[in-house]
Simulated assay, not measured.
Amino acid sequence: MDRWQAMRIFVKVAETESFTESARHLHMSAPAVTRAVAALEDLIGARLFVRTTRSVKLTEPGSRYLDDCRRILSDIAEAEAAAAGSYATPSGTLAITASALFGQMYVLPIVHDYLKAHPTLSGRLLFVDRLVNIVDEGIDVAIRIGRLPDSGFSATRVGSVRRVVCGAPAYFEEHGVPSSPADLKDHRIVASTSAWTSPEWRFARDQRVTIHSWLQCNTNDAAIATAVAGSALTRILHYQIGPALLEGRLQIVLADHEEPPLPIHVLYPEGRHAPAKVRAFVDLAVARLRENRLLN
């Protein structure tokens, strides 16, 4: 049995909690995956998984062995990459994910500059408003907004974003400026259902306001456009209205009542073992995002 291949199969089963799903990812048959794990258990003399008809869970020895396997496989990958030159020189394809609008507005320009500086590289972007599984979807770098769960990945904080209430100067001239969250009940509100599924808006000091929307939109862009037109107020993450703020087409109100801002992190799995393509992009992205005054 190829010990390295057996470890790789074991790690994939631990991550997916499924022999069938692991077989699909590894382009193997399910029986072959099962035999490889069984042979590995026989070799080391310990049960690695508790198997039922519905689930596959790590045993305590399996959990410890998983950490060791990941470290060993990472060392092997680093050695192979170093021999091939990819550890020292950016090469291959770099896969990056971020939320849709943030990716388009703030990550895409960085990717353009990065690829221009490294003409032998190619890029793959996944800009979606859902939490992407970095390992399963083959992502090298993720830019995440919000507090991170404990994942063991390397994460560098690069800024923060605020939830803000905003409107156009023309709207405030006609309808006045709210001085507290409670005043919102007297204003026209355009709500983005993609941003807030609940009609209850929360503010600092446990202030809560139930919003009765004048207009509901299923995209942030439509809600922002309505606010820019002077028709209503909206609530949005402030990076999404960066250009409109700088140009004076929108103004933020109720800033003293905002909840604490959400952090922005650049996240990547390999840590110090990351290949050159990842390390070079992370260095550039961290520097550029930290320089952006709209994100700090």
Rank of each mutant, 00 (worst) to 15 (best):
E17N: 13
A46E: 12
P263Q: 00
A232Q: 00
H273R: 15
A39Q: 14
I252K: 05
D186M: 15
F19C: 06
C217F: 02
F153A: 05
Q207E: 11
D75I: 13
W4G: 05
T52D: 06
K116P: 04
A191C: 07
L245F: 02
A244C: 02
L294Q: 09
E80L: 15
D206V: 14
C69F: 10
H175K: 15
R249K: 11
L245V: 04
R54F: 01
D42Q: 15
G103W: 02
F102N: 03
S180H: 15
E137I: 05
P109G: 10
T89S: 08
V37H: 09
D183L: 15
A23L: 11
L295D: 00
L233G: 02
F102H: 00
P61N: 12
V177F: 02
T59Q: 06
P181V: 08
G167N: 05
A222F: 03
M105D: 01
H265D: 01
I76K: 11
G138T: 10
V286H: 01
R188P: 04
R35L: 15
D75Y: 15
G146Q: 00
R71W: 12
E200Q: 15
P119S: 02
S29V: 02
L284A: 04
A79H: 15
R144C: 01
E60N: 09
R272P: 03
G167S: 03
F281D: 04
G159Y: 06
G152I: 00
T226L: 07
A244I: 05
